[in-house]
């Protein structure tokens, strides 16, 4: 809260700009790359590893405590993400999918944890790295399972069309599968987190400005609206964070699945 008021221009209310919210100074002066999102990303990796370690280091047949909670997440990923898209290959890919789901979920949920309050995925570099990993894996698996020529042939020339149409559609198929699909995979997560963080920052700033900085009889109701909207949108935002983590893992499973089996 106090960080936001320092950024506002003196005297009048100004909505927070992306530059103020997302361009953060390095934590240690002089080490340019070590900013808050990097610290949070490292922290969430350690957290995910720690939670899974605590849960499955010595698994019991009758789960209790931490193992119960993490098994719930594991079952969710297996039944909702892996099995519908990978079928009988689901168990081989569970490690990757569970890691992706939990990592993205923790990244996102850090956006509503009071002191930390920064969704890591709202810097596009982080989703891009995850999406690029899946992209490379997708091409590798496609070439391995369908052959170098067969993979591109299945992708660009689906059977059952007249010849001249292939000439028109092949560039669309290639561009959509090779460039646009991984791009939207990363951008979908990034854009949701970016917009959600800006929305929360805007409404909490409205509340803070009109109730604490410049308390006037006319401005107070607006401030109350700002606070109420902040609370409601935090709830919505937590739902969206969970949904985006699910979608990211689901699309990863979908790309892997489409490389393993040639469709139709």
């Amino acid at each position: 809260m106090s960080a936001l008021t320092v950024l506002a221009p003196p005297g009048e209310f100004g909505a927070p700009t992306p530059d103020e919210l997302f361009t953060l100074p390095p934590i240690i002066p002089g080490v340019e790359w070590f900013t808050k999102p990097v610290l949070l990303a490292l922290f969430s990796s350690v957290l995910v590893i720690g939670i899974c370690w605590a849960a499955f280091a010595s698994p019991k047949l009758v789960p209790r405590g931490m193992q119960n909670v993490v098994e719930l997440g594991y079952m969710f990923v297996r039944d909702q993400v892996a099995r519908p898209f990978l079928g009988k290959d689901a168990d081989r890919w569970m490690g990757l999918l569970v890691s992706i789901f939990f990592l993205v979920l923790v990244w996102n949920l850090l956006g509503v944890v009071p002191v930390l309050q920064f969704p890591v995925a709202s810097h596009i570099a982080f989703p891009i790295v995850l999406a690029a990993t899946i992209y490379i894996l997708k091409i590798y698996l496609g070439i391995k399972h369908q052959g170098g020529i067969g993979y591109f042939k299945n992708m660009m020339f689906p059977p059952g069309l007249p010849k001249p149409i292939y000439f028109l559609l092949a560039p669309i198929e290639f561009l959509s599968n090779m460039i646009i699909a991984p791009f939207t995979h990363a951008v979908r997560l990034f854009a949701n987190m970016f917009a959600g963080h800006m929305l929360l920052a805007f409404f909490s700033m409205v509340g803070f400005w009109f109730l604490f900085e410049k308390l006037t009889p006319l401005g107070a109701p607006i401030g109350v609206i700002g606070v109420v909207m902040t609370i409601l949108l935090t709830g919505l935002e937590m739902f969206i964070m969970y949904l985006q983590a699910f979608l990211f893992a689901m699309l990863a499973a979908m790309y892997i699945g489409s490389s393993l089996h040639a469709d139709h």
Binding site: P84, F85, G87, P171, I172, E173, L175, S176, N177, I179, I180, A181, F183, T184, M250, L251, M254, G257, S258, D263
Partner: peptide
Amino acid sequence: TDGRDFSDAMWSVPSYLLAGMAV
């Protein structure tokens, strides 16, 4: 495979349309 085919189709629609417009 119903679920897989259906979401496969729905999630690839935006990237197909963007690719068509780009080309």
